[in-house]
């Protein structure tokens, strides 16, 4: 009996570990995170080694995703992309990534801008902020739900929430898909 109680205690205590919030990235780490290796056409590439050493924090950490969600509003992304539905800018929910769904591509899009209207944010945001925002944008356009999700909305939901992989739900397979050259599944 005593052993059972002890075992239950140990198992329960295992649940007490809280996700770590990295509030302050060391300046050298932040500087290293800026050094992404992009392909010639500025689509896809490799994040710096430090990104993997930190265990891909901007994709898997709920605090970073929440910060990204705040920055999405702060820096006016909604003005062109709406809540992901798009508008003046492309949608994140239609299962189509112009520059691929990799973090480096999204990071590069935000940092350096893209042709046809996407402005560069490198003089407006710090490197870690851009990574956080990229992580959030990837989450709303992801084809499968991540294990981590940002905080809930206080205002009305206009699309499925981030933890349900809205792009996978809203992906339109046809017969007249948004992008004629897309594949049958995301």
């Amino acid at each position: 009996m005593r052993m059972v109680v002890l075992l239950i205690c140990i198992v329960t205590l295992g649940g007490c570990e809280r996700e770590k919030r990295e509030l302050r990235l060391d300046p050298p780490v932040a500087a290293a995170l800026d050094k992404i290796a992009l392909m010639q056409n500025r689509i896809a590439g490799a994040p710096p080694q430090v990104y993997f050493a930190l265990d891909r924090p901007f994709e898997t950490n709920a605090y970073n995703l929440s910060e990204g969600k705040r920055l999405y509003t702060w820096f006016g992304c909604k003005g062109c992309h709406g809540d992901g539905q798009g508008g003046i800018g492309p949608s994140f929910l239609d299962g189509w990534w112009y520059y691929g769904p990799e973090m480096v591509s999204i990071f590069a899009s935000i940092r350096d801008g893209r042709p046809h209207g996407m402005p560069a944010f490198k003089n407006k945001m710090t490197t870690d902020e851009i990574w956080q925002l990229a992580g959030y944008v990837q989450t709303i356009g992801a084809y499968s739900a991540k294990t981590a999700a940002p905080s809930r909305n206080d205002d009305k939901q206009v699309r499925p929430s981030e933890n349900r992989a809205p792009a996978a739900i809203l992906f339109d397979q046809g017969p007249t898909p948004v992008h004629p050259d897309q594949g049958p599944t995301p």
Binding site: R24, A31, R70
Partner: peptide
């Protein structure tokens, strides 16, 4: 120079 050490968690980033 270091807002996150003086007031951890606030929304001002450390700008290099």
């Amino acid at each position: 120079a270091d807002p996150q050490t003086l007031k951890p968690g606030n929304n001002m980033p450390l700008v290099p």
